[in-house]
Design a protein around this nucleic acid. Structure first.
Lengths: 240, 240
DNA sequence: CGCAATAAATTGATATACTAGTATTCACGA
DNA sequence: TCGTGAATACTAGTATATCAATTTATTGCG
């Protein structure tokens, strides 16, 4: 099943304070990561049918860890499990995207304000490093690596603000938006715009101007809203 | 299978499903709901060791659905699973509580503003009904039922705003706060204060005054922050 | 063609056994 | 006596086989 909307977030602090006893990577974790990446990269497009048994054979494991991975993906809204029927890669719920954008604006607005208040020069340096890498990747046209750095930028701001758990929530919320955005990111010049907007956010944080930082973030988040109407006509099978 | 007969309030929240495919309640769901309720009500206190095998025997089911339930609880931060070692009810991460409050303020602030903008008289009526029930429950001193109505109030506001997915996030974030709050809720007069604060929020929404609604919500959320320092000395085993 | 009976397919759950780490115990030696 | 370390008893992770419950596809008959 799929919660139709912004899916269940992983609780904050569950991973963060594992007392030095680092959780070892289980088979189920590996399967999850692989499927997660494949779905996000659209190598497994929305609507694609999945089967526990087939995946188990493909990875040479039993159904058990595959099932665990699929259940976790289901909670994240990336797959829909229909009992006694089948499992499919979930279609992107277009109706939930506006809500997801609202969540991002709310949380990232709060976060960037706080970051602007307490950022240190070292923090600014880390942001600069990310932006620098993004500039290079934009020039190379490496959209995949660029997207990773984009995530790193937003995660870094959460870290600067002292709200690492908020990033955990945002990552979950962002997934559906990102799946849609993956279809539009190749648009020429978009990556350069992102780099520029990140620079504005960075400058506002460096200047400890909370209001400007929020404004820059709001503008940035508004700019990356995918045009769902157009996408829907272009990839009708990928949305619902 | 006897456990399926054990009637557990499955509807801990809206499982608003698509009409076509409705998901039946699985054994794992029932186990999850039961454990979730027991942990939240502190019938299973933080630090209490759990064992898949023992729980399975207790519910007369196999390990499989128990395991699925524990994995979901783990993602929600309610239990900590140590591979090849054991599972325990998680201690409340005190360091995460302030962050959780920030998330609540951010999201519920956004939500209540939107609700104030578009609330209909019928919506106000629903809020009034909840507040009315809370007033009765406060008089009776039924803290458990009162808490359920408290959840209903905040969920209703999310619904009015048209952001049902935000409630899903909030519920997850609220859990850790609520676990701590359960130790302080019996404070005399607190329930009456909550009723009053809910009334102020309701009035602001009814008046379509977004600013006042946000202010009332901020005040409300600030008032229910548990005194972690005191709790930590009073229940040292429950926090980390 | 319509439709009901039937077969196939798939997830949900059970039972069992085994693996691989983890924590405890307890005898042993400095 | 006090560690120390190896044997030992857990516990979660995985594998396998099997059945149950349900949905979906197929078949065959009127």
């Amino acid at each position: 099943m799929q919660a139709a909307v912004v899916s269940v977030p992983v609780a904050m602090a569950s991973e963060a304070e594992r007392p030095a006893k680092l959780r070892r990577v289980t088979t189920a974790d590996a399967i999850f990561d692989r499927l997660y990446a494949d779905i996000l990269a659209l190598r497994m497009p929305p609507g694609m049918p999945l089967q526990e048994k087939r995946i188990a054979e493909e990875f040479n494991v039993s159904r058990t860890p595959v099932r665990e991975a699929l259940l976790r993906l289901s909670e994240g809204g990336l797959v829909d499990i229909y009992p006694q029927s089948g499992t499919v890669v979930s279609r992107v719920p277009v109706s939930a995207i506006p809500e997801a954008v609202v969540v991002r604006k709310s949380l990232e607005g709060t976060t960037v304000e706080r970051a602007a208040e307490i950022a240190t020069p070292a923090d600014i340096g880390r942001l600069d490093a990310i932006i620098s890498r993004q500039r290079s990747l934009a020039a190379l046209g490496d959209t995949s690596a660029f997207h990773e750095e984009d995530e790193a930028f937003h995660e870094a701001i959460s870290g600067i603000a002292g709200y690492p758990g908020i990033w955990t929530i945002l990552r979950t919320v962002k997934v559906q938006i990102d799946r849609a955005r993956r279809l539009t990111l190749p648009v020429l010049g978009r990556m350069d715009n992102v780099v520029h907007e990140h620079g504005l956010i960075r400058d506002a944080i460096a200047a400890h101007d909370a209001d400007a930082a929020r404004a820059a973030m709001m503008h940035h988040l508004s700019a990356v809203i995918p045009d769902v109407a157009e996408l829907r006509t272009q990839y009708p099978d990928y949305f619902c």
